[in-house]
């Protein structure tokens, strides 16, 4: 088992290498040479050339790639071209609001989806299941953007239940800005989750031990909680782990509509302003987190699920 894990760990290196290659070569082509923009209004060719030298963009791609790898190793991304600020400190500042938006809605969604799926596992009627399916599929058939536009209009503007837009550093006060984005976020993600969890539970219910219990008239809440939920925990956990990187990145749309100063907004501005160091940093960091979490998920499976074959 140790050997398997070691192998698995070593395997992250080629992946990291691949990620760095893709990032570097695709993202280098984004949106224009920054020297032109930085040169300002009345630029001269000489000025632009000098800027290229300072930014290092005049150097060979190989050289730039080496620099990039070094930055990845040291996690020191330098200064943002556009914001003129240290990238790491900007990322740290943006992380808070992003997490405040995504983490609670992540857990609310989880709770809601689990409890709906679990309670429907209790009902066995075909009809109720079809209704649930239709309901979830309907939620999944409307664009995220439509939800945002309509809900912001109705709840914040028309009925004035929430502030339209904004952010605050004060803890309880900031909740008023977050409630509506949370709600929208839950509405969008709860549909597919219910369906996935229900399938998992259904599968567990169809197993022999449950059938036996059922035949004895024992399908109680206890079985539901103690066995079915417990036995489905592993796939659910790995699913959740795989979503954590998305949480870090925040939600681009929600952040922009509700004025939440998170990483999603920083990212899109970086892309739109050809702020290559920033784009590299954000992408590389989230890829790192993703790779690490995958490793963690595999380890969890290894420890708790005897069925995993050690290849």
């Amino acid at each position: 088992m140790k050997r398997y894990f070691l192998r698995r760990f070593l395997y992250t290196f080629p992946t990291l290498f691949g990620v760095s290659l893709v990032l570097f070569f695709i993202f280098n082509g984004i949106g224009g040479d920054p020297a032109y923009q930085l040169a300002g209004k009345n630029a001269s060719l000489e000025q632009i050339e000098n800027l290229r030298q300072q930014l290092g963009t005049h150097q060979s791609l190989l050289h730039q790639y080496k620099d990039f790898l070094w930055q990845t190793v040291t996690l020191d991304w330098g200064q943002s071209w556009y914001f003129k600020e240290n990238i790491n400190s900007m990322l740290l500042k943006g992380l808070g609001p992003s997490l405040a938006l995504t983490v609670p809605s992540f857990f609310f969604t989880l709770l809601l989806a689990l409890s709906v799926a679990l309670s429907f596992s209790y009902f066995r009627s075909e009809k109720s299941h079809s209704l649930l399916t239709w309901f979830c599929l309907s939620l999944m058939s409307v664009s995220f953007l439509t939800f945002i536009i309509v809900f912001q209009y109705l709840f914040a503007f028309k009925w004035g239940l929430f502030p339209i837009n904004g952010w605050s550093q004060d803890f309880p006060f900031v909740l008023s800005f977050l409630l509506l984005p949370w709600f929208i976020s839950i509405i969008v993600s709860v549909g597919p989750d219910i369906l996935i969890y229900r399938t998992l539970f259904q599968e567990e219910i169809n197993k022999d031990y449950v059938k036996t219990a059922q035949a004895k008239g024992l399908l109680t809440t206890q079985i539901l909680y103690k066995h079915i939920l417990k036995n489905s925990m592993l796939p659910i956990l790995s699913l959740l782990l795989s979503r954590i990187p998305q949480l870090l990145l925040g939600s681009l749309l929600l952040e922009s509509f509700f004025g939440i100063p998170g990483l999603g907004g920083i990212m899109i501005q970086a892309l739109q302003n050809a702020d290559f160091p920033m784009v590299k940093a954000i992408t590389m960091m989230s890829s790192l987190v993703y790779i690490l979490l995958n490793l963690l998920a595999d380890l969890l499976f290894l420890l708790f699920d005897p069925r995993v074959e050690l290849k």
């Binding site: 990620v19 893709v22 990145l249 989230s286 890829s287 993703y290």
Partner: peptide
């Protein structure tokens, strides 16, 4: 290796970068 690599990059970022 190829798909693990691609999968490790947040898809939204990948799409945005390619579109740009």
């Amino acid at each position: 290796w190829l798909y693990t690599t691609l999968d490790s990059i947040p898809s939204l970022l990948l799409i945005l970068a390619l579109s740009f």
